[in-house]
């Protein structure tokens, strides 16, 4: 046992150095002024960005829901396929993740912009164009595209563990296709839904760059705001740290709410 504990030492040190220490630094910056005096002003000042925070949470919520709606049927179909076929299609659908994140975002710019791919294709058939670039819609599309794989992975791994015997048992007891889904597949896939929602929602709330590239200047999200405090012209790490702190607390609240909702009777019961 002690030997095993020794093996975990490098990780413990890693966590201390790169998680605990930075968190303390963030806390310190958030609660001090430029001159190093204690203050609450940075944190209380975050209220100014209330609308940006709300917008970020709303967009992240919509993105999470959209990812769930797209990924759920896809993952279910994959999980019912033969083992190798399912894995292969999953692999194909995750391939874009190998391409650099910025490149993928640029690709969406070229698709969605005024004279982009989408509008050129539409131009063949219609006389109107979609004015979608630089809107919240474009940001949401970019984010769904970016975070969808996380949702698929979470759902797929849970759904594949659902024993075919469960489905046959439900049919045997009189459940038709929809009954099987509602009474067996849906409840048994809930753990995957919850982890998928967490894995999409958390990074989506603090997204930046995507929002700037696809949303233009007018759709700044909380991630961009923090980014600007450190790398932009404003340069105020104390305010940046304060916003980060508030965001972190909000995310923790959202997650614990979500887990509360899910863990009532599900946890650890999947065979």
């Amino acid at each position: 046992m002690n030997k095993l504990k020794v093996l975990s030492l490098p990780y413990m040190m890693w966590v201390c150095l790169f998680t605990v220490v930075p968190l303390i630094i963030v806390l310190f910056f958030a609660l001090t002024t430029e001159n190093g005096e204690l203050t609450i002003m940075n944190v209380s000042g975050v209220g100014r960005y209330f609308s940006v925070i709300i917008k970020s949470i709303l967009i992240a919520g919509v993105v999470t829901l959209a990812s769930l709606l797209v990924a759920y049927p896809f993952s279910y179909i994959l999980s019912q396929m033969e083992f190798k076929t399912g894995n292969f299609i999953l692999f194909i659908s995750l391939l874009p993740m190998w391409v650099n994140f910025l490149l993928r975002a640029y690709a969406w710019v070229t698709i969605l912009e005024k004279n982009g791919l989408l509008n050129r294709v539409l131009g063949f058939f219609f006389s109107w164009k979609l004015d979608i670039i630089n809107t919240k819609m474009a940001v949401a599309i970019g984010m769904v595209y970016n975070y969808l794989p996380f949702m698929v992975l979470a759902l797929f791994s849970t759904m594949r563990k659902i024993n075919i015997g469960m489905i046959e048992a439900a049919q045997d007891l009189g459940a038709s296709g929809f009954g099987v889904f509602r009474k067996v597949i849906l409840p048994l896939s809930m753990p995957g839904v919850i982890s998928g929602v967490n894995m999409v929602f958390v990074p989506a709330v603090s997204t930046f760059i995507i929002s700037r590239m696809l949303g233009g200047g007018s759709n700044m999200l909380i991630g961009d705001l923090i980014d600007m405090q450190f790398l932009g012209n404003i340069y105020n790490p104390h305010v940046g740290a304060a916003i980060s702190l508030v965001l972190m607390i909000l995310i923790l609240l959202c997650m614990s709410l979500m887990n509360q909702f899910g863990s009532e009777d599900m946890e650890g019961k999947l065979i």
Binding site: A169, D172, G174, S176, L188
Partner: peptide, 20 residues
């Protein structure tokens, strides 16, 4: 006839009880 319309029930080999 699909299984859910048959007046027959099964005790499965590994029981296949619903864990939830």
């Amino acid at each position: 006839l699909p299984p859910y319309k048959r007046n027959v029930n099964t005790v499965f080999q590994k029981y296949a009880l619903f864990p939830h």
